[in-house]
C-alpha cells in the first residue's frame, strides 16, 4: 500500500494463511469504511483467525454471533443504536463468506434487506466452505472440484452454476448493489465507502480467491483475482435501485483457460477426457457475462 492509502483497522498478527483472501477483504472493507464502524461477522475463517481469545485483530467494535444469523444481528445492532439515539453516522457492516451469505444465512439477510435496515453487507466470496475444509457452496462455480463435489471418474466436479446473489439482493429493492474483487483494492474501497454512505441496506459482493481452497501459490491471490475479472468470469458492476449504472470494461478478454489453469480445483479439466468440452461451457459463461453486462 502506498503512503497515501487510507488507514485500516484490522491488525496484522492474525492466524490467516499467507495470502489469505479474507484478510484482504476485511482490510479493504475497513479502509473504505473508516473507524466509525461496527462489524458483524458470521462464523468463518475471518472470525476464527482474527479473534483467538484473549486476542483480537479488530480495532473497531466487532461481534460474532453464529453462522446463519448475521443479517438479523446487524438488524438488531442498527435498531438498538437508533433506539438509543446513537446511530448518527456509525456504519454497520456485516462481512461474511459465501456459505454464511448465500446458503445458511440467506433467510436472515433477506429479512434485513426487506426491512430496509441501514447497513452494508459485504460478502467475501471464495466460492466454497473453506473454514471447514473446502466443501461446495452455492457460490462454487461450475466444474470446480471441492471435497464434497470432487472430480472423479464420472464427474467433472460441481455440476451447478454459481448462484446469482447480487441479483437476489437487488430484487429486494436495495438502493446499491455492487460486485468487486480483492484484486482491485481501490475499486473495493470506493464501493464500500459509497455503500456505507447510502442510507438503507446496501450490498457488496467481493470475489476473493482462496489460496488453500483453490490450490494456488500464496503469492498469487491478487493476480488470480484479477484474472477472474480479465477473463470475464467475474464481472464488476454497480446497480443503483435495481439498474446497472456502472460496469468495469474489459478491453481484451483473456480466454477462461488462462484463469482455470492457475488453480488445482480445475486441474481435472485439463487431464480428463471431455475436459475441453467442459472448458467451452465455462467460456460460454464468460461470453454471456460479456454480452449481458456489456463488458467490452
Amino acid at each position: 500500500m502506498s503512503k497515501t492509502a487510507p488507514k485500516t483497522y484490522i491488525s496484522s498478527g492474525h492466524s490467516g494463511c499467507a495470502g489469505c483472501c479474507d484478510a484482504f477483504a476485511a482490510k479493504f472493507t475497513l479502509m473504505g469504511a473508516g473507524p466509525n464502524t461496527i462489524i458483524v461477522n458470521p462464523t468463518g475463517c475471518l472470525e476464527v483467525m482474527s479473534t483467538p481469545f484473549p486476542n483480537s485483530s479488530w480495532q473497531v467494535p466487532w461481534i460474532h454471533s453464529l453462522f446463519e444469523n448475521a443479517g438479523a444481528v446487524a438488524s438488531g445492532v442498527e435498531a438498538g443504536l437508533k433506539a438509543l439515539g446513537k446511530k448518527n453516522d456509525t456504519k454497520i457492516i456485516t462481512i461474511g463468506g459465501d456459505g454464511s451469505t448465500m446458503d445458511i444465512g440467506i433467510g436472515a439477510i433477506s429479512g434485513a434487506f426487506e426491512r430496509g435496515h441501514d447497513f452494508t453487507y459485504v460478502c467475501m466470496d471464495n466460492e466454497a466452505y473453506m473454514n471447514t475444509g473446502i466443501q461446495r457452496s452455492s457460490a462454487t462455480p461450475f466444474d470446480a472440484s471441492t471435497t464434497t463435489s470432487p472430480a472423479g471418474k464420472v464427474s467433472f466436479g460441481n455440476p451447478f452454476p454459481k448462484k446469482n446473489m447480487p441479483a437476489i439482493i437487488a430484487a429486494h429493492g436495495s438502493p446499491y448493489v455492487a460486485t468487486t474483487s480483492i484484486g482491485f483494492p481501490r475499486d473495493m474501497m470506493r464501493k464500500v465507502k459509497k455503500a456505507t454512505e447510502i442510507v438503507g441496506p446496501t450490498y457488496i459482493h467481493a470475489h476473493a480467491p482462496c489460496t488453500t481452497g483453490w490450490g494456488f501459490d500464496t503469492s498469487k491471490t491478487l493476480e488470480i483475482a484479477k484474472l477472474a475479472v480479465e477473463t470475464c468470469l467475474w464481472p464488476m458492476y454497480e446497480m443503483e435501485n435495481g439498474e446497472i449504472t456502472q460496469v468495469r470494461k474489459v478491453k481484451d478478454p483473456k480466454p477462461v483457460e488462462e484463469y482455470l489453469r492457475t488453480q488445482k480445483r480445475f486441474k481435472h479439466l485439463f487431464t480428463m477426457k471431455g475436459g475441453e468440452e467442459e472448458i467451452k461451457k465455462i467460456q460460454a459463461t464468460a461470453d454471456w457475462n460479456i454480452k449481458h453486462f456489456g463488458l467490452q
Partner: peptide, 10 residues
C-alpha cells in the same frame, strides 16, 4: 438474533 445485536449495543 436481532436481540443479540441490539443487546450488545446496550
Amino acid at each position: 438474533s436481532a436481540l443479540i445485536g441490539a443487546s450488545a449495543v446496550g
